[in-house]
Design a protein around this nucleic acid. Structure first.
Lengths: 161, 161
DNA sequence: TATTGTTATACTCTATAACTATA
DNA sequence: TATAGTTATAGAGTATAACAATA
C-alpha cells in the first residue's frame, strides 16, 4: 500500500475520530460538532456575515446552513437581521448568549485539541496543518483531468470582503 | 492562531473536500463515498467479515452499517450469509458484481487520489499519512483528562483475526 | 439577468434503546 | 451473562430544484 492509496482512508479515519470526539464533548452543551463550527465561523469573523458568506466559509451548502441556523436560532445563539444595504440578504450574527456559549464550547474543545496533539510535537503539528491545507487546496481547485482547461483561472479564488 | 488551534478546522476542511469530491465522482456509479469505503473495507479484507467487524473497521456503528448493507444488498453488491460457526452472526462479503463494481470505483477514485497528491511530493505524502495516523491514534485512545486512569490498558487495542 | 434566500422534498448517515436469538 | 444482529425511531447534515424578492 502506497501513501497515495492510504491517504484518503487515513484522512477519513482522523477526521471521524475528531468528529466523534467533538460530538461527544459538545453533546453535554446541546450542540453538535458542526454547529460548533458554524458558531466558530461567526465568532472568528467578528462581524455579521450573510448566509452565503457563512456557507462559503464553513464550507457548506446555503440550504444546509439555513437548516442549521434555524436550529441555532431556536436555541437563541444566533440572530438573522435584514442586511442594511442588500434587502435580499440576511445578516447573521451571534447573540450575546451565543458569544458566551461559544466561549464555553471553545474551552470544552481544549480537551479535544490536546488529544489531537498528544502524539505530535509542535513542529509536526505545524507541518500537518500545512500539508492538510495543501491537500484541501488542490482538491478544491478544479482541473481534475484535463477536461476543464477553461477553469484554470478559478484555481485561486479571492473572496471579496 | 497557533497550529493547535488551526488543526481541527484544517483537518475538517481537507476531509470535507475529499468527501465532496468523492461523492461527486461516485455519484455517476450510483454509490456514495461512504458506501465506497464499506466496499473497500470488504475488498481489502479479502474474506467475509461479520457486521460487527465491518463496523469496527469502517469505523462506524453496527446499526449504521446495517442500514448501508441493506442499501448495498438491494443493488446486489454485497451478500449476508449465516456465519458458519456462530449462528448469531452474519457473514458479509462482496458478490461477483460487487467485486467488479469496486474495481470500477477504485479506478474512478484515481482522479481523486491524484488530486490530493497534486500539491505534495512523495515524502510529504508519507509524512502526512503518518501524522494523520498519530492524530487518529491519540484521539481514539481514551484518557482525555486524567479522569479514567483505569482505562490505560485500553490505549492500544489489538484486534483478533 | 443574476443573485440571495426560502421552501419543499428526499436521501444518507448517525445513533440509542428495546428486543430476539444465540454463545 | 454477554454478544450479534434487528427493529423502531429520531435527528442532523446534505443537496437539488422551483420559487419570490431584489440587485
Amino acid at each position: 500500500m502506497t501513501a497515495k492509496e492510504k491517504l484518503p482512508l487515513a484522512l477519513r479515519a482522523a477526521y471521524l475520530a475528531l468528529h466523534r470526539a467533538s460530538d461527544a464533548q459538545f453533546a453535554d452543551h446541546g450542540v453538535t460538532a458542526d454547529q460548533f463550527v458554524l458558531l466558530a465561523t461567526l465568532a472568528r469573523g467578528g462581524r455579521a456575515l450573510t448566509q452565503r458568506q457563512l456557507a462559503q466559509r464553513m464550507p457548506s451548502d446555503p440550504s444546509t446552513v439555513r437548516a442549521m441556523l434555524v436550529l441555532l436560532e431556536k436555541q437563541g445563539f444566533v440572530e438573522r437581521e435584514r442586511h442594511p444595504s442588500d434587502a435580499r440578504a440576511r445578516s447573521v450574527s451571534l447573540t450575546a448568549a451565543g458569544k458566551r456559549k461559544f466561549q464555553t464550547l471553545w474551552r470544552a474543545g481544549e480537551t479535544i485539541r490536546d488529544g489531537m496533539l498528544r502524539a505530535l510535537d509542535s513542529d509536526q503539528a505545524e507541518t500537518l496543518v500545512r500539508l492538510l491545507q495543501q491537500v484541501a487546496g488542490s482538491l478544491n481547485s478544479p482541473l481534475p483531468g484535463a477536461a476543464t482547461g477553461a477553469s484554470l483561472v478559478l484555481s485561486s479564488h479571492k473572496e471579496a470582503s
